[in-house]
Every structure is written in C-alpha cells, then in structure tokens.
Design a binder for these strands. Structure first.
Length: 153
DNA sequence: GCCAACGTTGGC
DNA sequence: GCCAACGTTGGC
C-alpha cells in the first residue's frame, strides 16, 4: 500500500464536489504530465491512501482523505474534441493519458499549507519543496501517518 | 496580476 | 541532441 498527495483546483473539483458525486468517486482526469501519469498508470493500487489537496486557490491545503478506487484506464477527456484536455495525438488504440478513480473517505477540516510548512516532520514532502509543481506526488508512510494521525481534527 | 520554477516544443 | 522560446503551475 502506497500513499499519495493529489492536487485538485477547487474551481474544477472541490472536496464538496467529490462528496456530492455518485459513490463519492471521481475519475482523476486531465493529468497531462508524464511523471504524474506514470504514478497513476504504473504504481497506484486500489486502496492506496490519498490526500486530496486544494491548489491554486485562496486557501491551499489538504481538504480530505480519499483512496484509489480503480485500476488505471485511459482518460476519456483525451478523446473529447470539446474538452480542454483533448489530445490530438492520442488514439483509442494507443491512448497517451491514463487515470484512476479516487473515492472520498472523509472530508476534513482544512490542513492549510502554512500549517504543513510549520512541521519539521514534513520538511521533505515533495509538495512543499521549492518549485515543485507536480500534481501527484508520493508520500512517505511517515508523512502520511503524521498528517492523518497528528494534524487532522 | 505577478512571477519563479519547471516542462515541453521545435528549429537547427 | 542542444537549447531558446514558450506555456503552465500555483503561491502570494
């Protein structure tokens, strides 16, 4: 079992949006970065722990606990001409982008970015590193435990 | 809206 | 394969 931090812009899919979806589950569509894709395609397994992070918004931070809820499959938006995620180089035979489904476990009181930065235990977290932009990053089990056991009210 | 950091593109 | 130009991310 692995642990992941996954960023979502709340104007796109917020934690409340996720909570309102059938099965409280969403396809993690729209990833167009190879490293992040590879995490989903090659490393994620059903049941992996996910921290659902709100990014590019007024109050960035961890907004919920979730889990990986499917094996990887082709991201439908790459084939959709009307989607901003359409990829003309992708074909049904050779899809380029993959996603998993993510299911909400629990909405939490926001653990803000400044709070995350305040703990020495988390200083090596990828998301907190200078210049990091990757939307999906692995978490050390120790980081997962610290956040889920110590920072969540 | 600014801008630092980083990934991708494409000419050569 | 190099690398300048460009686009995107995301905190502030």
């Amino acid at each position: 079992m692995r642990f992941w931090l996954m960023k979502s812009e709340p104007t796109d899919v917020s934690i409340d949006d996720l909570a309102a979806l059938p099965e409280q589950t969403v396809a993690w569509y729209g990833v167009r970065n190879y490293q992040a894709r590879n995490f989903m395609r090659d490393q994620m397994q059903i049941g992996d722990g996910v921290l659902f992070y709100h990014s590019n918004c007024a109050a960035p931070g961890i907004a919920g606990i979730a889990k990986v809820a499917s094996t990887p499959y082709p991201d439908a938006t790459q084939f959709d001409r009307n989607s901003k995620y359409f990829d003309p180089k992708a074909t049904l035979e050779t899809p380029r982008w993959f996603n998993v489904d993510v299911q909400l476990v629990q909405k939490i009181e926001l653990v803000s970015l400044p709070e995350l930065r305040a703990h020495a235990e988390l200083e090596r977290m990828r998301t907190l590193q200078r210049g990091n932009r990757l939307s999906i990053t692995p978490l050390d089990p120790s980081e997962w435990r610290f956040i889920t056991e110590r920072l969540i009210r």
